[in-house]
Design a binder for these strands. Structure first.
Lengths: 225, 225
DNA sequence: ATTTTTTCTAAAAATTTGCTTAGAGTCTTA
DNA sequence: TAAGACTCTAAGCAAATTTTTAGAAAAAAT
């Protein structure tokens, strides 16, 4: 895990960095906000830990700048300001957590881990994608439902993968054609129907709760029951 | 935003619920963990706020159960336990935030908002349009009025979507023909009347306040009462 | 008040969409 | 090269949706 620590007080900064490094975190340190912004432009971090009070720019402003740049890295603010109002303005500026000084370094570590865990929950980067009792492993191409192994062909797998990556919305057939088949509009959408049919036989047939559903006239979606 | 509050101490529970409700949060209250789990099985929440110390099951265990069930709703723990170790074990159990009692209700609110904001960041597109108690979700294609689910055909949905996107003005029939039917002047506008009729049956019929109105000689518009 | 125009409604007709099955190509592997 | 597995097309049937039709109801105009 890579963490960017922005803290202008050198002593605090180095003791935090030392502790995080000990805990297996790859920590980069910046002593002011401007430097931090530059680093963020060049590389990506899992979590950003920033002080609120800094000489050149406060942590609130920093968060706003990052969010307006569409940078969605979790932000944890640390500050000597312990008033509710301070915390609220920090959180409202786009921070994900706010920890008042002095704090226990172990708590900081736990909060960083929690932020990291959550941002990794969204199936985007992980090897495995799951929904309910269905799980697919992108690297081994294995599929299981309720622990039971299911064997899919390559096309079946990529169709299922696409459906799972887009869980929570209805996916139009034309989009599936483009993304899974790399085809334009010319071809008949019947291929999809046939393959959805294959998937259903392998994944839903012997279970009570069906996961693949049809939205008439549009396409398909993943949902329990 | 829907929040589930699990808190066994009735006085604390109701004061939290009252405050959240005041702030526009739709709060459901459970007085023990078992009840909370049942509710979570039946419906989905944006954020779960749970006490740590409860008679039947502690918040730590609750979080573990939820995470093992693949329920990824953000969890905020509140507790009288203020020791670092308690916070760490809460966060490690899968909680996303930990707030020690006594706390300022405004801070709780800000932290709930932060959790909600983050979990919506990963939900790529949950574009919703609403007017009064009517809501349509462009990505899931779901329609609800006063929370009640309404099933529309594709044409009905796109007609309603067009009306809602143009709320606040009268939309001429010819414009609807062009935009929703992709047709010129050749066709009879009666199709629209028929479809407005369908929509009214599904959306307005069983409600006192009608939302779809006719501007005689021109077209239709969305307005309460 | 009557006529004309416009809108609403119900039902029939036409069209579109989806599921399923069988089989023909295509690619892999023994 | 043959057997097997995989991908795609085509066609029939069932179901759902969309359009048309026609008469009743409502609104505007004469």
């Amino acid at each position: 895990m890579k963490v960017l620590l922005i803290e202008d007080e050198p002593k605090t900064a180095s003791s935090i960095k030392a502790f995080l490094d000990e805990n297996g975190v790859d920590t980069e340190l910046c002593l002011n906000a401007a430097e931090g912004l530059k680093k963020i432009d060049r590389q990506s971090f899992d979590v950003i830990v920033t002080d609120v009070i800094m000489p050149d720019m406060d942590g609130i402003k920093l968060s706003q700048v990052l969010r307006s740049k569409q940078i969605k890295t979790p932000i944890l603010m640390i500050s000597a300001l312990d008033e509710t109002e301070d915390k609220i303005s920090g959180l409202n500026a786009g921070a994900d957590d706010y920890l008042a000084k002095p704090f226990d370094l172990k708590e900081l570590m736990a909060r960083i881990s929690a932020l990291h865990r959550r941002s990794n929950l969204s199936n985007l980067s992980s090897e495995k994608i799951n929904y309910e009792d269905l799980e697919i492993n992108i690297s081994t191409l294995e599929v299981t439902r309720s622990g039971k192994k299911i064997i899919l062909t390559p096309k079946e797998f990529s169709l299922l993968e696409y459906l799972l990556r887009n869980q929570g919305r209805v996916i139009p057939k034309l989009e599936i054609l483009e993304k899974v088949w790399n085809l334009g509009v010319e071809i008949n959408t019947n291929v999809i129907e046939v393959y959805v049919n294959y998937l259903r036989k392998k994944i839903d047939k012997e279970f009570t709760d069906k996961l693949i559903h049809t939205h008439f006239g549009i396409g398909y979606y993943i949902k329990k029951a």
